[in-house]
Design a protein around this nucleic acid. Structure first.
Lengths: 262, 262
DNA sequence: AAGTGGTCTAGACCACTAT
DNA sequence: TAGTGGTCTAGACCACTTT
């Protein structure tokens, strides 16, 4: 019930701004500052915890970035009601899928040069008939195919392609964050898809079963589009989760904001 | 080629930290600081632009949060290669779908009380046979059904339910971020799904077509699970996109970092 | 020892909102 | 006018890495 001693330990390994941010997070979680309410002004917090304005602001800035607080100039700082809007699905599950751990292998199904048809020329913004490389690969984990990739790359005769480079431009490189120095920007779109006959066979899934279809497109530092394609991942192997709001146990009211005391 | 005059205007409406952040972003985009390279130390930037250390740090902090820079204590600050890992799909498209604009209506298909079977009791962490409310709703936009929702709510006889409250707990409230003060945390999982006969009929899609299936679960401030359910959105009405890397046109080298000059 | 990022202070001034 | 958040300064000290 009481505002709690709520001391910030200057000797703790946890920085003061993080301690204050945690303290406020707990107070929001335990209902001391319910959604819509106003938290104490920065000067008050600064006096209460013996912190300089910049440190207080930093703590508030963290919670603001997390979507928990909404500061309004001239009015005060308020607790926001939670909503999914600012949140999103992390791509980590996808990155983990292609991380090429011990039991994961890439099986090249097909690789050959093709000439850009209208659709590809439009997508990659190259002239019709431009020479491209088409790659069809299967990611196999524990003996089971989990991901089918079909991709087109710009074929640059000045830079002969090695398999390693192919790899960088497609699966692990972009997703797992290897030291990829070629790509400036990229785009990824996900939609649900029903597997057709051929896809289902390659992925050893029943025809008509559901999968994530992810289309990608990326550019180099010269702002040339250097590759496009899609991944296909049947359901059981990939799903996207997200959590919003306050995901920890609020302490009993009156307890110190942070367990790390003294 | 030259490091550019690169002056930060103290009279600009754009704060100094944002101007510096933009300047560095441009220099990364135009290849001055390629992935893996080290940017000038904070003290150097401070001298160059006549900024105090805190202001320089703030600019670097922004780019660090964006995943563009990686500061290493004692070593320097380095430009990161881009990767999808830290990025994610925003839920905004979903929120917009249910935003209930002019042509969007909710059609209640079914609402009645049920008793928790094993699956529901487990999910909501309530005893078997607990009284629940089941809701089946269709979101109709421009006359076409775009989203099917099936949800279960804890039935609390102390708090008689009104339709408005139902709404808060399910569609618009959580997603569009209305002033929802009941929910402390929530969880959302997406997977691809093939529509079965009944779902396809309600959504007026061909049987066997693909849709996003999104399961949700949320808790109140007493850490009780108060609702669960799922959304079903057929493909053409929803897709998730994300962009990574540097999505603006880098200026010609030598130009000032920010267009807003003096 | 020198150089780097990480934290923090104790103020200042400004912009905006309410009264 | 008083109270609020927003920006910024000019230092300080610390922790870590490299030489």
């Amino acid at each position: 019930m009481s505002p709690a001693p709520a001391v910030i330990s200057k000797t703790s390994a946890e920085p003061a701004y993080a301690q204050l941010a945690n303290y406020l997070r707990y107070r929001i979680a335990d209902g001391t500052y319910p959604p819509g309410s106003q938290i104490p002004p920065e000067v008050t917090l600064g006096r209460q915890f013996n912190l300089s304005p910049m440190t207080v602001r930093r703590a508030i800035g963290i919670l603001t970035d997390e979507g928990l607080l909404k500061p309004l100039q001239g009015r005060g700082t308020f607790v926001r009601a939670i909503d999914w809007q600012n949140s999103g699905f992390s791509l980590r599950p996808l990155a983990e899928l292609v991380s090429q751990g011990g039991n994961t292998k890439v099986r090249m199904l097909n690789i050959h040069t093709v000439k850009a048809d209208e659709r590809l020329a439009d997508k990659l913004r190259v002239p019709l008939q431009t020479r491209l490389i088409h790659v069809l690969r299967l990611l196999v984990r524990d003996g089971a195919p989990v991901l089918l990739q079909s991709g087109h790359l710009l074929y640059d005769p000045r830079q002969p392609l090695v398999e390693a480079e192919l790899d960088v431009i497609s699966l692990s490189g972009l997703l797992s964050g290897s030291s990829n120095t070629l790509v400036k920007k990229g785009e990824l779109e996900t939609r649900p898809k029903t597997l057709n006959r051929g896809e289902a066979e390659l992925l050893r899934q029943p025809e008509g079963s559901a999968a994530f279809a992810m289309e990608y497109l990326f550019w180099n530092f010269q702002d040339e589009c250097i590759g496009c394609g899609f991944f296909l991942v049947p359901f059981p192997f990939l799903s996207f989760k997200t959590k919003i709001g306050l995901w920890f146990d609020a302490p009993e009211r009156g307890a110190a904001g942070t367990p790390a005391a003294s």
